[in-house]
């Protein structure tokens, strides 16, 4: 056992980085964390992690992981979007309906700062909301999805927004996503309709496709940027404009038609 005492003047935060290399046999469906958990007792490590979500004289300090929650009707593609973002894969017809609530981690590099996203995937069916809305209050960001080929999922967005306003934090980062934008022949919700609704509610908006990958990375990056700016903004730095950033970076579903 090694004892280590650190002294710091009041109101200063000391960051202690302990790097441990652990060799493990990777197993599919087993994240690194799972393996760590397995081997931690063997190694006799007592790991306690403290997060200090503060800037330290402008020096990047690892941020507290941010909770991002995916919500929207059943079948709009929440899990697919998440898997596309996490693993860069789209395996048509290989997804099972999400029951209850699930989560995955992903670390993004935003302007040389590591932002860790804890992404919560929820069941879309209405009756599961009473099980999942308890977690709204912990979410820093909410991605609200509808399916451009399913009118009902678009019509329900207002109900979702009501729910979000009731249960989520006041300052939660919110974004509206029209998913499955790659499907042109079955589309029933025009891009303009999504834009209009988003404007009405003052929510950033874009169309995405988990299948083609359209704007998927951007959706999560934009959210991560906003969250990072909120925590690490320097006094004289201008406020991050999420919608402007999105407008600049996003690609249209049918970019080559007009």
């Amino acid at each position: 056992p090694v004892e280590c005492r650190l002294m710091a003047p009041p109101h200063h935060t000391i960051q202690l980085v302990l790097k441990v290399h652990i060799c493990y046999k990777p197993q599919q469906n087993d994240s690194c964390l799972s393996n760590m958990l397995l081997y931690r007792p063997t190694l006799g490590l007592q790991v306690k992690v403290h997060y200090f979500p503060k800037t330290y004289h402008g020096i990047p300090v690892p941020l507290h992981p941010s909770g991002v929650m995916l919500v929207g009707d059943s079948g709009v593609g929440k899990t697919c979007l998440l898997v596309r973002f996490k693993d860069g894969a789209f395996l048509a017809g290989s997804f099972i309906s999400t029951v209850g609530i699930d989560f995955r981690n992903k670390v993004l590099n935003i302007d040389a700062v590591k932002v860790k996203l804890q992404i919560w995937d929820t069941a879309g069916q209405e009756r599961f909301r009473s099980v999942t809305h308890a977690y709204y209050r912990d979410a820093d960001a909410l991605l609200l999805l509808y399916d451009v080929t399913n009118k009902a999922s678009f019509d329900n967005i207002q109900a979702w927004l009501t729910e979000v306003h009731e249960f989520a934090q006041k300052e939660v980062v919110l974004m509206l996503l029209g998913n499955k934008a790659d499907v042109s022949h079955e589309r029933v919700v025009k891009r303009e309709e999504g834009e209009k609704l988003a404007k009405e509610y003052g929510v950033p908006f874009m169309e995405t496709s988990a299948k083609s990958g359209l704007n998927v990375e951007l959706a999560f990056t934009a959210v991560a940027k906003e969250l990072k700016h909120r925590v690490m903004k320097e006094p004289n730095e201008p406020k991050f404009q999420l919608q402007e950033y999105v407008n600049r970076e996003m690609k249209g579903a049918g970019c080559c038609r007009s």
Binding site: N29, D30, S31, L33, S34, L37, L38, R40, P41, V47, K48, V49, P65, F103, N105, Q118
Partner: peptide, 22 residues
């Protein structure tokens, strides 16, 4: 319980509850 008790935060605990079913 040994595995679960190693968890120090919510994601750890969630992960351990998946791990113990395998």
């Amino acid at each position: 319980q040994e595995i679960i008790l190693q968890g120090r935060n919510l994601p750890d605990i969630c992960e351990s509850f998946k791990l113990i079913t395998k």
